[in-house]
Design a protein around this nucleic acid. Structure first.
Length: 466
RNA sequence: GGUCCCAUCGUCUAGUGGUUAGGACACCGGCCUUUCACGUCGGUAACAGGGGUUCAAGUCCCCUUGGGAUCACCA
């Protein structure tokens, strides 16, 4: 147990995307590794863009990935009084001031500054105003120092320094009385006792002004770790046009959460040459310092490979359960055919996703499937009919109806007939599965069961007969 | 444009001054095999460029180039 506290603070304006999920994962991992607390905070100060559905989608994504939180979710929209209090405090202490400049004036000065080649920052018109202007709308600005340097040691990027003259007096409260982002993050992280802030590196430029705020407020400055963003194949920010960006979309495409977690953590982080990590191993081995500094390209192929790996490793019973919705989507009720776990077992090695597995399982549950034309023409030929019929007869009386027993029967059968497996195997395969790509025929027969196997063999015989 | 960040195979990365620059995905070949896969063996493929520092530089420093982030009464 330690007093380390981390947080994930998404704004609920959409689903949980892979970038956010990775940030959440890093936070969660570090919290678990150090025996600290992981708090979840919903940044919904922008009431117009925030939705309940989005909050639910984010929570659902976190749950799917197995990222549980110890405190929260806290909602910023419920903490406005707290923020107001801190604004008043800064105002009273002279660390903030009321600014009466209108958006139009600001915009105009900004443009003029740009034209004259100066920095487009607040000119400080109201900074030293002594009298109040009642009845005029105002924003509250933080009085930032104009000199000196604000620096911090980023856990990922190393030391980063900014000259304070680059910063201007940021607005902490809008004219409608609501607080702004850079202010509430600081108040929240400070009052929630967050010790390490892990977030996307699009926030590094916000960090110095936030540090100044911590100092003005008298709170200790947390440690920062800015994680690089995730890119698409063309090296631009990952977006929908690169494919799915929602983690739940990956579940729907048949990915396992452990594959997603393993993929996400290895994108930007490594531990020697190791590629596969169990959850416990990650908690043990993860370290934020080992996260790389540069942005990384999201590689669907590698995700697929990892998913395939975890599908091969998973218990058939678990996979069977996860597979049901995919089967139903395809109009198959697994209760009407062979038991699912044995079926899954025949498909694990050749399925990279549950979608592929569901497609591969269809033939087990469809009795009147059409044979693939070319396969039927090549293998369901007159010569094969007596062999299939003989096989059906032998199978009827087979005592040991297991994979091994079935294989022994086939060996015996081809020895008797003086043929090779290649002369009857393909026909059996087409008869049973409808096509030429399938699991091994012994496994298929075992999974299908005696009765169904015989029925399919005889159906093929009838098909050959015309 | 200002500020800040980044830079090893196509991609994810190992590498903390001395390596035949390693692994993984993808790709290509061999083997295995009743199909498809799995597996296995092997192969192609990288230090952005230029200056320093050093006996020695992918590793340290500087510059260039290239990418990116950010500059709101959005988060």
């Amino acid at each position: 147990m330690s007093d380390v506290r981390l947080r994930f603070a998404p704004s609920p304006t959409g689903y949980l995307h892979v970038g956010g999920a990775r940030t959440a994962l890093f936070n969660w991992l570090l919290a678990r590794k150090q025996g600290g607390k992981f708090v979840l905070r919903i940044e919904d100060t922008d009431v117009a863009r925030s939705t309940r559905e989005s909050v639910d989608a984010i929570l659902q994504g976190m749950e799917w990935l197995g990222l549980d939180w110890d405190e929260g979710p806290f909602y910023q929209s419920e903490r406005f009084p707290v923020y107001r209090e801190f604004v008043e405090k800064l105002l009273a202490e002279g660390k903030a001031y009321k600014c009466y400049c209108t958006p139009e004036e600001l915009e105009e000065r900004r443009e003029q500054a740009m034209r004259e080649g100066r920095k487009p920052k607040y000119d400080g018109t109201c900074r030293n105003r002594t009298e109040e202007l009642p009845d005029r709308p105002y924003t509250v600005r933080f009085k930032a120092p104009h000199e000196g340097v604000t620096a911090f040691d980023d856990l990922i990027k190393g030391r980063i320094a900014f000259n304070n003259e680059e910063l201007d007096d940021l607005i902490i409260q809008r004219s409608d009385g609501t607080p702004t982002y850079n202010f509430v993050v600081v108040i929240d992280d400070a009052t929630m006792g967050i010790t390490t802030v892990i977030r996307g590196d699009d926030h590094v430029n916000n960090t110095p002004r936030q540090i100044l705020l911590y100092e003005a407020l008298g709170y200790p400055v947390p440690r920062f770790a800015h994680v690089p963003m995730i890119l698409g194949a063309d090296k631009t920010r990952l977006s929908k046009r690169h494919g799915a960006t929602s983690v739940m979309a990956y579940r729907d495409m048949g990915f396992l959460p452990e594959a997603m977690v393993n993929y996400l953590v290895r994108l930007g982080w490594s531990h020697g040459d190791q590629e596969i990590f169990s959850r416990d191993e990650l908690i043990e081995k993860f370290s934020i310092e080992a996260v790389g500094k540069s942005a990384g390209v999201f590689n669907p192929d590698k995700l697929l490979w990892l998913n395939h790996h975890y599908i091969k490793e998973s218990a058939p019973e678990r996979l069977a359960e996860l597979l049901v919705p995919f089967l139903k989507e395809r109009g198959v009720d697994p209760a009407t055919g062979p038991a699912l776990p044995p079926v899954v077992k025949t498909l694990q090695e050749r399925s990279r996703t549950l979608v592929e597995m569901a497609d591969g399982a269809l033939f087990y549950y469809r009795r009147d499937f059409a044979y693939e034309e070319e396969a039927a023409a090549r293998h369901l030929v007159p010569d094969a009919a007596p062999l299939l019929e003989a096989l059906a007869g032998k199978l009827e009386t087979l005592a040991d109806f297991s994979r091994a027993g079935i294989e022994a029967l086939f060996k015996e059968f081809i020895a008797e007939k003086g043929i090779k497996l290649g002369q009857v195997g393909p026909a059996v395969r087409v008869a049973l599965c409808g096509g030429t790509a399938s699991p091994g025929i012994y496994e298929v027969i075992e999974a299908l069961g005696r009765e169904e196997t015989i029925a399919r063999l005889r159906r093929a015989v009838a098909f050959i007969a015309g």
